[in-house]
Design a protein around this nucleic acid. Structure first.
Lengths: 232, 232
DNA sequence: GACTATGTGGAGTAGGTGTCTCCCCTTATG
DNA sequence: CATAAGGGGAGACACCTACTCCACATAGTC
């Protein structure tokens, strides 16, 4: 259990220069994962940080651990959003804002998007954070439904699918039109609002948690070859 | 125009066994591209056809040419759907059916989906077929709008985005739940129906044709490594 | 200022993947 | 049966990416 994948409290503190470089690595990872996604290599990150590859590999056993270190904290941001959504005066507005803000985060950080929608990275802290998120999201959804504004046949496992859809538009158009996803999300949310007598019957049952997990485990990163978007 | 990238009428006819194998290759390509997408290698296809790689490479200079040979004809299916949509009694139903049937084709054939949404393959015949499709789709959309049933701020270039979204759900869930995309499309279509006083204002202008083309040129195939789904 | 534990850089290794060629062997066809 | 055409598939080649290793540099200490 006490796998110190990322030594939170190392036996001896790092030498000052080493500690500085550790920070540099994490900062670089934030930028590089953010723009290139998890397909970025540790070599890329080392280069962006102005360090040698060896330095990165001494500090972090592998990409997995670096991803954990980076994104565990960012998950808190999303949890904060969910909490905020639960406290919103209008349950529907809470749901909408939550969805919208989460999409905004995904648009700004490709790595975060991939971590959220896939299970191939972040098996420890990130996975726990995601698990803690589930009941909250369920509440956000149910609250909006009880208020009669979110269609009744919507289900919490539909939300990742929505983010998957929006994420794919973000990816598709990120070269030139970095905001068209907003159009798509607006259309989608219009389809989610309860409208007596209008909404069509959904032609297929929702994903159960197991199937969602299967999908997340099977998540496929895009093929590499895109060096664009790396600042500097 | 008479670019015989794939010799339609070769100077001398192929030997009988060679012609047979040509067919075998195309049939294999249909199956393999269909389930594995364009990331499949010609080696894969050769193997599935029960032939050597050399045989495939003698018949087709490269993947590009094989893709052209395969999908040029399939584009006609989609054009037929658009024509059908234009003749539908109810313009809205025509639009809905067209979108729905196209999605169905995408769900059944991953290669077709990738060819439709990207410009990295099929620069000749497929590209022409796509160009011929544009005015038809425009008509389908405008007709549904004139009838007052499709929201007025929808635009033809939104349609590829919808298929991109649905396609990403198809990909995401194809392992276990191969039909959830239907849920998503139903939600989306509910958001497209004109509803006086209900629809939100779309927060971003649509894609122009140039930006759409940029997106299609930048399309990134998934990272390989997935051998699942190849029949046999 | 000199000594040593600690840290660094980046060329290099190992291993994977995909494209396509080459050449010896097989087969159709007249 | 002769021979031109076709077939097979090992392997050359040209990428990647993950990760290691060790000569050299530096921080912290006495």
């Amino acid at each position: 259990m006490a796998r110190d994948t990322v030594p939170a409290a190392p036996a001896r503190p790092l030498r000052r220069d080493a500690e500085l470089n550790r920070r540099r690595i994490i900062d670089a990872a934030r930028v590089v994962f953010g723009s290139r996604g998890l397909e970025a290599t540790l070599d890329d990150i080392a280069h962006y940080a102005g360090l040698g590859v060896g330095t990165v590999y001494r500090r972090f056993p592998g990409k997995e651990q670096l991803v954990e270190a980076m994104f565990a904290e960012r998950m808190d941001e999303i949890r904060a959003l969910a909490e905020q959504a639960l406290e919103a005066a209008d349950p529907w507005q809470g749901f909408v804002d939550f969805t919208w803000q989460a999409a905004e985060l995904h648009a700004d950080d490709r790595g975060l998007r991939e971590v959220m929608l896939s299970n191939v990275f972040g098996h420890e802290q990130v996975a726990e954070a995601k698990a803690r998120l589930v009941p909250m999201i369920t509440k956000v959804v149910e609250r909006a439904q009880r208020s009669g504004q979110l269609r009744a046949d919507f289900v919490p496992t539909d939300l990742p699918l929505i983010h998957q859809m929006i994420g794919s538009v973000i990816e598709y158009t990120h070269v030139t039109q970095t905001h068209v996803w907003k159009r798509c999300l607006a259309l989608l949310l219009d389809g989610l609002r309860a409208e007596p007598g209008k909404a069509s019957e959904l032609p297929y049952p929702p994903l159960d948690l197991q199937s969602l997990d299967d999908a997340m485990c099977n998540f496929r990163l895009p093929r590499s070859g895109d060096r664009s978007g790396i600042p500097r």
